Structures are given as structure tokens and as C-alpha cells.
Amino acid sequence: MNRPLKKKFLLSLILFLIALSFTSMGFALGEEEPLNSYTARGKVLEVTEGSPQQDVAFLETYMVTLEILTGELKGEIFEIEHTLSGSFVYDIEVEPGDKVLLMVEEFPDGLEIYITDFIRDTYVYGVIFAFFALLIIIGKKSGFKTLITLALTGFFIMKVLLPGILKGYDPVLLTIVVSSLITLITIFIIGGINIKGFSAIAGVLGGILAAGLITFIIGTRVKLTGLSAEEATMLMYIPQNIEFDFRQLLFSGIMLGALGAVMDVAMSVSSAMAEIKRVNPTIRGRELIKSGMNVGRDIMGSMANTLILAYAGSTIPLLLLFMAYETSIVKIINLDIIATEIIRAIAGSIGLILTIPITAFTSGFLLERFKGKQVNE
């Protein structure tokens, strides 16, 4: 074969392999791009068995009759092919009556409709509404205040913390600022701007900073990567092209996760001490601090268990895998994902424990210092 013919042959072979690779990935050359694509809701009316897949033996095809519930096609009926791969994790097995989420793609020669997931938001919104209703019915005025604080907490997380991290701001510093704002607003709305509120704020900030400091020191020493969760790994491929420090994301997550429990403990201790002072105005500061510590010790056991059980509950499938394969405790405890969860639970619990003396001493000092004032002033 002469050189020109050899070059043409190699070029043809390369082009053929490129076309073959695109075809195998589902992006065949010349395939039309959709003119428009959007999400719609649909209801499954009927499911029947379709023709078996010739090329792939394990794929099963069904013919699904759908009614479109939203958008321009609302009320129209379509029959589509729905393929299952036999995977329990990824397959969407539908039955008549199921409400599903659809992807509608418009092409010059017609429509392509795919089932992408089940519709779950109806029940999610129902549970949220029931939660809000119970807060108002049982909590009355306090329940309404709780709703306000929840809304503000959600606003700070969704509109300040997460966008700030995506813009490249330091996650730990931003978490400290947002946690402080959430603490100030929550405690002042629920407890009022008084000695009780200031004592609780001092306890919360002290406990959260202690949890963050412990996490930073220990996490650095044991070389945690912050990549133990699959979602963290996926952040390396987001379109914003931000180079995250994943350990800082881990530290900020631990601080934010401990905030709720720490705030609960601080508010309980400061409220109890304020009530003791109101009932017995002549009580000495030392006795008041001792009473606050006793209240805190009773709370401490259950709240520490709450944190540890919450973190352990999220890793039950992983723990079952270790038990099923009889993995040694040495290997388990040295895994990044397990060490991360242990430090997350213990650091949060240490922050919670330290909140008790900080709140008790601050509250005792302030109540003794301003003993001529009313407790709620």
C-alpha cells in the first residue's frame, strides 16, 4: 500500500472509530437536538408489556399510557416506551394511578416523553403543613415565633451561606457569621432581649466555636479529606469551577449541624436559671450557678445521645455492610468516612457539653450583677 492510500485508509479508520464511539454513547452523528425541553407532571393510566429489547437481553420494555397533568399538553393522552434495566436503585417501576415527573422534548417531527421520577412533593408539602399546623395549634404564640425563626434560618442558609460558599468565600468564617446571626435572631425572638437571652447567646457561641475548634484540630491531625460523602466528590465537577477546600466544608458542616442542639441546651439552662431567680430573688449567684449546672447535667445526657444517634442513624447501611463482611474494628475506625462521622458526633457533643458551664456562669454573673432589675428586662 503506497503512502497516500495508507494515509487515506488511516483517516477513514479514525473517522469510523469516532462515529462508532459517538453512536455507542447515544450521541450518533447527525442526531437532532430538541427544539425545546421541559418538565411536566403526568398520571399513569395503563402499563402493558412491550416488545423485548433485541440488543440487550436484560432490558425490559413496557408500554405506558400517560395523561399529562400540567403545561401546554395538559389533558392529552400519550403512549410511550418505558425501559427497565433490572436495577432496584435506578429503575422506576410504575403502576396505573402513579403520578410521575416527565421530561418532554420537542423535535421538528414530534415529541419524545420520558418518565424521570415519581412525584413526591405532594406528600412532602403535606407533612410540612402538618408540622406548621401543630406548631401553631399547640405552641400558639411561641409556635408562631418558632415559624418565624425557621423561615429566617432557611433564608440565611439558602440565600447567604450557600451562595457565599459558591462565590468562593471562606466556608468556616461564613458559617460562624451565619450561625451568629441565626443565634441572635432566634434567641431574641423566642426568649426576648433580656438577661436570659444574652446568657443563652454566650453559651451558644461558646459551644459552637469550641466544636469548630476541636473539629479543626483533630480533623487536621487525623488527615480527614472532607470527601467521604459522594456529594462532596461531585462538587469537583460543578460549572462554577470553584476549587473547594473540602476539609473546610466539613468543618463548617459540623458547626452548623451542632447549632440546633447547642441552642436548645443554652436556652433551656438560661430559662431555668431565670425562672429560679424570678421565684427566689434573694438566691446567691453561686447557688444559682449550681442550680443551672444541675439542670444542664440532666439535659446533657439526652442531648448528647440525640447528636450521636442522629449521626449513627445516617450510617446504618454502611455499618451493616461492615458487619456482614466481618470487617475488623481497626480497619473500620481508620476509614475516612467512619473517622469523619465519629469526629462529627464527638465534636458536636463536646460543644454541647461546654455550652452548659458557659451559659450557667454567664447567666449567674448577669443575674447577680443586675439583681436590682427584673429578670425579663
Rank of each mutant, 00 (worst) to 15 (best):
G143Y: 08
F144P: 08
F144H: 08
K145S: 12
K145V: 06
K145H: 07
T146L: 15
L147P: 05
L147A: 10
T149P: 07
T149A: 11
T149H: 03
T149R: 03
L150D: 05
A151I: 08
L152T: 12
T153W: 03
T153S: 14
G154S: 11
G154Q: 08
G154D: 01
F155W: 06
F156K: 10
I157Q: 09
I157E: 11
K159A: 15
K159N: 14
K159E: 12
V160H: 06
V160I: 15
V160T: 13
V160W: 14
L161D: 01
P163F: 05
L166N: 08
L166I: 07
L166P: 06
K167V: 09
G168V: 09
D170P: 04
P171A: 05
V172G: 01
L173Y: 08
L173V: 07
L174H: 03
T175R: 00
T175K: 03
I176T: 04
I176L: 04
V177I: 15
V177R: 02
V177F: 13
V178H: 08
S179R: 09
S180D: 07
S180Y: 11
I182P: 02
I182H: 02
T183Q: 00
L184W: 05
I185Y: 04
I185V: 14
I185R: 02
I185C: 08
T186Y: 10
I187V: 10
F188I: 07
F188E: 09
I189W: 01
I189T: 12
I190H: 08
G191F: 10
G191M: 10
G192H: 10
G192T: 13
I193M: 11
I195E: 13
I195N: 13
K196Y: 06
K196R: 15
K196L: 05
F198H: 08
F198D: 06
A200P: 07
I201L: 09
A202G: 14
A202T: 14
V204L: 04
V204K: 00
V204P: 03
L205F: 07
G206W: 05
G206L: 10
G206R: 07
G206Q: 07
I208W: 03
L209M: 15
A210S: 10
A211G: 05
A211Y: 05
A211F: 10
G212V: 07
G212S: 12
L213Q: 14
I214V: 14
T215H: 07
F216G: 06
F216P: 06
I217Y: 11
I218C: 13
I218V: 15
I218Q: 11
G219P: 00
R221V: 10
V222N: 06
K223R: 06
K223P: 00
K223Q: 04
L224G: 05
T225M: 01
T225A: 02
T225F: 00
G226T: 00
G226C: 00
L227H: 01
L227E: 02
L227N: 05
S228G: 15
E231T: 10
E231F: 11
A232T: 02
A232S: 12
T233V: 11
M234A: 15
L235Q: 01
L235P: 01
M236Q: 14
I238A: 13
P239M: 12
P239A: 12
Q240H: 12
Q240M: 09
I242Q: 14
I242W: 08
D245Q: 02
F246W: 01
F246K: 02
F246Y: 15
Q248T: 03
L249D: 02
F251S: 00
G253A: 07
G253M: 01
